[in-house]
Computed example of a mutant assay.
Amino acid sequence: METTTLFTIFISGLLVSFTGYALYTAFGQPPQQLRDLFEDHGD
């Protein structure tokens, strides 16, 4: 492979991994237990 192709693949991989990391830190882990607030209050 040419150097340009390898460099492009490397930069693309870095971009994808950085985007995934940024999304994970922005939104965090999903909560373990979800509550439905409408069902908690009833009618």
Results as ranks from 00 to 15, higher is better:
G28N: 12
T19Y: 06
P30A: 07
R35F: 00
E39V: 06
G13W: 05
F27Y: 14
E2W: 00
F7L: 15
F18L: 15
L23M: 10
L23Y: 04
F38V: 01
T19K: 01
D43S: 09
Y21H: 08
Q29T: 09
Y24P: 01
L15S: 15
R35I: 02
A22C: 13
S17A: 15
T8Q: 13
Q33D: 08
L37D: 00
L34A: 15
Y24S: 09
Q33H: 10
A22M: 14
S12N: 04
L14T: 05
E39T: 06
Y21W: 14
A26L: 15
G13L: 10
F18I: 12
Q32M: 05
Y24E: 10
L37G: 00
L6G: 04
T5S: 14
D40S: 05
M1S: 10
T4R: 11
F27A: 12
P31D: 11
G20F: 04
A26D: 08
D36S: 06
P30N: 02
Y24M: 07
T25F: 07
M1T: 02
Q32C: 00
L34G: 08
R35T: 04
P31C: 02
P31N: 03
Q29N: 11
H41Q: 11
D40N: 05
M1N: 06
G20T: 02
F18W: 10
I9N: 07
L6Q: 06
H41V: 15
F18K: 05
L15Q: 07
A26N: 06
F38S: 02
L6T: 01
I9Q: 05
Y24A: 14
A22W: 12
L14W: 03
H41D: 10
F38W: 04
Q33F: 02
G20Q: 08
G20C: 09
Q29F: 02
T3F: 11
Q32K: 14
E2K: 01
S12R: 02
I11P: 01
F7T: 12
D43N: 05
M1E: 11
P31E: 13
D40I: 00
L37W: 00
S12C: 11
D40C: 01
G42K: 03
Y24V: 07
F18T: 14
F18E: 12
T5E: 15
I9M: 13
F18R: 07
E2L: 08
P30D: 07
E39R: 07
T19F: 08
T3N: 11
V16M: 08
T4H: 06
L14Q: 09
F10Y: 13
Q33A: 09
L23R: 03
A26M: 13
R35G: 00
S17I: 10
L15G: 11
T25R: 15
G28E: 10
G42S: 04
T25D: 13
S17T: 12
G13V: 04
F27Q: 12
F18M: 13
E2S: 14
R35H: 11
G28D: 11
E2T: 11
F38D: 05
G20I: 03
R35P: 06
T4N: 12
F27W: 13
G28Q: 10
R35L: 06
F18N: 09
L14E: 09
H41T: 09
Q29V: 02
P30F: 01
Y21F: 14
F27H: 06
L6D: 05
L15C: 13
Q29E: 15
E2Y: 03
E39S: 13
V16K: 02
G13M: 06
D43R: 09
T25Q: 14
H41F: 14
L34T: 15
T19S: 14
T19N: 03
F7G: 07
I9K: 07
T25M: 08
